[in-house]
Design a protein around this nucleic acid. Sequence first.
DNA 1: GCGACAG
DNA 2: ATCTTGTCGC
Length: 290
Amino acid sequence: MEEDDDEASKDNDEVVGLAMTDRAEEDAHNVAARLLPQQAQWIEEQEHLKRSLVQRDHFLWKYVPGNDIISTVSGDKHVEDNSLHYVGGVDLSFCKEDPSLACGALIVLEMPRLKVVYKDFDIVHLDLPYIPGFLAFRESPVLLELLRKMRMHKPALFPQLLMVDGNGILHPRGFGLASHLGVLADIPTIGIGKNLHHVDGLNDIVVKVLASKYLKKAGDAIDLIGKSGKVLGAALKSKDDCKKPVFVSIGHRISLDSAIDIVRACCMYRLPEPVRQADIESKEYLRKML
DNA sequence: GCGACAG
DNA sequence: ATCTTGTCGC
């Protein structure tokens, strides 16, 4: 008898398209609610990891804005220099049919050419839903595994800096996905948000007003200051003809000014190349898998 | 009470 | 995140 009911309701869902959507949203809502106790524990973990967060430049290489001159010495590949050569980007793409199925991507570009020199992917099944403020618990496992694998098999190209599709300290507790990954992998990271995370009084209205007033041309940036007075990140106009800015924030082991300079140097389109390539390639890899 | 809320 | 068509501009 139970089975009959289940079959009947399943059939209804398939016949009535909207029922499917409602069911999916309801499930996501219920799962998020069921995870409320878990969230208290996650907050503790974020607060704990945050103690290791470094919000200033902490790396051996240097980046000189506007210096596109490649290293000098000709023909000697053994010369060690301390400039920024490899920048990584990570992103996840999801399957529309099965939203729990995702493809994580780690892409590495060589600077200043912005050419892809490494890419790796992993198809994974995600148990946790997306919950604002807790993105790292959903996405970081697969990304950390991709980083670990690369460190083991291709250390020569391992990125000196990682750009993450998600915020760093521009986050309710000042510890978003980019910071989470940075601390756990112990590498410099920059948070790249495509949308503003409404935090500490910041909202789309405020940003829109500031942007129309101060973001005139590509490269222009404004600090995003919460009502607490803290600089949480910056809105950067990455292209002249791009109305919507990209939201840059400190991930780990880098200052906001340095982060903005490097993101500027990586922008051919709205999104900086490392993140854009990770986005494109992860979608393509997932598509070919199906 | 209801809505808002990175990906 | 993903679903989608056209459309404005170089």
